[in-house]
Amino acid sequence: MDIETLHHISLRVSDLARSMRFYAEVIGLEQIERPPFSFPGAWFRLGNRELHLIGDAAANPNRPRAVDAGDTHFAIRVASFTAAIEGLRRLGYREDVAPDDPHCMLLRPNSIVGYPQAYILDPDGHLIEINAARLDD
């Protein structure tokens, strides 16, 4: 197998409209055209890749809803870590709340991996890592 790149990520979501608002308004993704499948969903541009949401009212009924950097997640790279964190703070995300709070943000500006990281949850409890090449001022 000669793999060129990761093409897209698909997530099952319990409330498609709510998740569409989250990925457009919180994460800032642009919605793109989606084929007329027989099931509900939405597609978003994720840099030069795609995020596909699949609407399913029964999605993730028992998914833990706590920010845990060791959980399954996908990561997005941003140009400015500081700008991304400031934007999340303006939307109510905070580091000083319980991990199961919907607006919990786990910050690791000086992470052992060598680049700054932040973690938040989407409305269905999918963990999202936000990182940048370096910690900016």
Rank of each mutant, 00 (worst) to 15 (best):
R90D: 13
E33S: 12
V26G: 01
L16G: 05
R45L: 10
A58Y: 10
E95W: 08
E25D: 15
I54E: 15
G55C: 08
F39T: 09
E30D: 14
R108Y: 11
H73I: 06
D96I: 06
A75L: 08
G114Q: 07
E86K: 09
G92P: 00
R90F: 04
G41W: 08
G55F: 05
M1D: 10
R12C: 05
P36Q: 13
L16D: 06
R77I: 15
P35G: 10
V97H: 00
Q31K: 07
D136S: 14
M1A: 12
I3Y: 14
R21E: 11
R45N: 07
R94K: 09
D100M: 07
E50M: 11
R90Y: 04
R63Y: 05
P64S: 14
L106Y: 04
R108F: 12
P36E: 14
R65I: 05
Y93N: 00
E50V: 10
P99S: 09
H52I: 10
G92T: 02
R12W: 07
A118N: 02
W43V: 05
G114K: 06
P123K: 02
D101V: 04
N60T: 12
I120F: 03
S10M: 12
M105K: 00
D68S: 13
D68H: 13
G70N: 15
A24Y: 01
G55H: 06
S14T: 07
A57W: 07
A66V: 14
L11M: 13
L46C: 10
Y93S: 02
V97W: 00
E86T: 08
G47A: 08
R108E: 15
Y23H: 03
H7E: 14
A17K: 13
N110K: 10
A84H: 01
R77Q: 14
N62S: 14
L46D: 04
F44T: 02
R12Y: 12
I3C: 07
V78Q: 00
I32H: 04
T82I: 09
L91A: 09
I3A: 11
R89M: 10
G55N: 08
I76K: 01
E95T: 14
P64L: 15
L46P: 02
L106F: 07
P35Q: 08
D136V: 11
A83H: 12
R108D: 11
A24K: 10
F22L: 04
H8S: 13
P102V: 01
A66Y: 13
F22Q: 00
I3N: 05
D124A: 07
I9K: 02
M20D: 06
P102I: 01
H7N: 15
T82W: 00
F74D: 03
G125N: 09
I9A: 08
A84D: 03
N131E: 11
